[in-house]
């Protein structure tokens, strides 16, 4: 029992650099190197356009952190994005009001994600195995829906709608609107993972699923919810893509898996679960983007580009790791 004479244990509050410091340093070094070699790269308009181009991938990376933190991985989100965009686009073409079509796209994405979650729980299989199958189902459904062609809303009433004008860059804004939206989404995702009970439960499941279950956490329910969240965010990505590019192709989203997962991992989220950084995935996505742009700016031959990309990723991860190790030593 504490009395007024009991000595109080003094714990000194230490300044702690954010988790994402190392990945930010790696990003700045990359930007500085490319900027020094090709100064036009640093023009604000280039940097903003680059960021806008990678915004949707970054958004998905921010959300896949939830799954990775839970020790799971989803292979189908690219095709969820595709099918959500196709359904929203077809609804628009069919005359459904734009905002309702947008809602249809996001709701469809959420439903597909929830389906992944339900199958994982019911079949007692890892999400990666379930989504091996559902990825093809979503892709196939998309191909049937779009008759293996692009979905392009061309009616001027549709393309002139604020949704398309805002996302397509037809409204003057110093910062691309898609970028503003994605940054706001990152705030929400960060707060959800690190400041809510839902987020703590995800991390607990990722740390030790059995312990989490014994502690009374409804692990099955949380898994379904996180899968639905991933689907919902992929749906958001799909409708953003539709607004941003003005069309969706049969191949859209098919190549997103690697860059998105790479962004989350480069950003500092381990594959082992139990931890994750949403902001880190944003910077990881920017690193992936900067490398892609840098290869072009520096003028590296396309045949060498893939090799160079791999080497630079290793370099970025190396810088990140060095900073992390030094941080640990200072502790």
């Amino acid at each position: 029992m504490l009395t007024e004479f009991t000595p109080v244990l003094k714990v000194k509050k230490r300044f702690k650099l954010p988790e994402e410091t190392s990945v930010v340093i790696a990003l700045l070094i990359l930007i500085a190197i490319i900027g020094a070699l090709r100064p036009t790269f640093l023009k604000p308009v280039n940097l903003l356009n680059l960021s806008a181009s990678y915004a949707i991938a970054a958004l998905l990376a921010g959300c896949i952190v939830f799954l990775l933190a839970m020790g799971e991985i989803d292979l189908s989100f690219g095709w969820i994005l595709n099918l959500s965009a196709v359904l929203a686009g077809l609804a628009m073409i069919a005359g459904v009001p734009i905002w309702i079509s947008v809602f249809i796209g996001i709701a469809a994405g959420t439903a597909m994600g929830a389906l992944n979650g339900v199958l994982t729980v019911v079949m007692r299989l890892p999400l990666i195995i379930v989504t091996l199958g559902t990825a093809s189902i979503f892709q196939g459904t998309s191909l049937i829906s779009n008759k293996s062609g692009s979905v392009v809303p061309t009616d001027k009433e549709i393309t002139g709608h604020i949704f398309f004008r805002a996302l397509g860059g037809q409204i003057d804004s110093p910062v691309p609107i898609i970028l503003i939206f994605v940054v706001l989404a990152f705030f929400v995702l960060h707060l959800t993972l690190h400041k809510t009970r839902f987020g703590y439960r995800i991390l607990a499941i990722g740390s030790n699923p059995e312990a989490a279950r014994l502690a009374g956490i409804p692990t099955k329910k949380i898994k379904i919810q996180v899968c639905a969240l991933m689907g919902g965010v992929s749906g958001v990505g799909g409708v953003l893509f539709l607004g941003f590019r003005g069309a969706v192709d049969p191949s859209t989203g098919g190549q997103m898996l690697l860059p998105v997962v790479a962004a989350a991992i480069i950003g500092g989220t381990p594959l082992s679960g139990g931890a994750g950084t949403v902001w880190g995935s944003l910077f990881g996505a920017l690193i992936v983007g900067v490398i892609g742009v840098g290869v072009v700016f520096i003028g590296i031959n396309a045949v060498w580009g893939t090799l160079v990309t791999g080497l630079v990723i290793i370099f970025a991860i190396g810088v990140d790791q060095i900073v992390r190790v030094r941080k640990k030593r200072f502790k």
Partner: peptide, 30 residues
């Protein structure tokens, strides 16, 4: 993949080239 190719075209445009030749496999690039 169309979007990845469009980003490549945009990057090469931003790098200061005078003209661009590109294949266009996707409507989303238009």
């Amino acid at each position: 993949e169309g979007d990845a190719q469009l980003v490549a075209v945009q990057n090469i445009a931003a790098s200061g080239v005078d003209g661009i030749a590109t294949s266009v496999p996707s409507a989303s690039m238009v």
